[in-house]
């Protein structure tokens, strides 16, 4: 079994109004050093399969559904998990 962590964020070239609002709010709180906030999505998947297969499958899933390549970037981490 593999535990897969997928991170999806808006591409650098895309303005993130939500991140901008949070950055402004942090600044208002007194945290003046915050230069930029980008808000994204975090997903955890549990997948059955061989190591190579999992990597290929995750990449496909990210491109077909989990992210929209027009406006989003994705990255993922794969961890082997021991069945309990």
């Amino acid at each position: 079994m593999y535990k897969v962590k997928v991170f999806v964020t808006l591409r650098e070239s895309v303005l993130d109004p939500q991140g901008k609002a949070v950055q402004q709010s942090l600044t208002n709180l007194g945290y003046e050093g915050v230069q930029d906030v980008r808000i994204g999505k975090y997903m955890e998947l549990t997948i059955d399969g061989s190591n190579q297969e999992v990597e290929k499958t995750v990449q496909e899933m990210c491109e077909k559904l989990l992210s929209n390549p027009v406006v989003e970037d994705y990255r993922y981490e794969i961890e082997e998990s021991v069945q309990q």
């Binding site: 808006l10 895309v14 303005l15 109004p17 939500q18 609002a21 929209n68 027009v70 406006v71």
Partner: peptide, 17 residues
């Protein structure tokens, strides 16, 4: 239609959220 690729581009949240 945008997600399906029948039309190009994507939607973002409205600029003032």
């Amino acid at each position: 239609l945008l997600e399906s690729g029948l039309l190009p581009g994507a939607m973002l949240r409205n600029k003032d959220l």
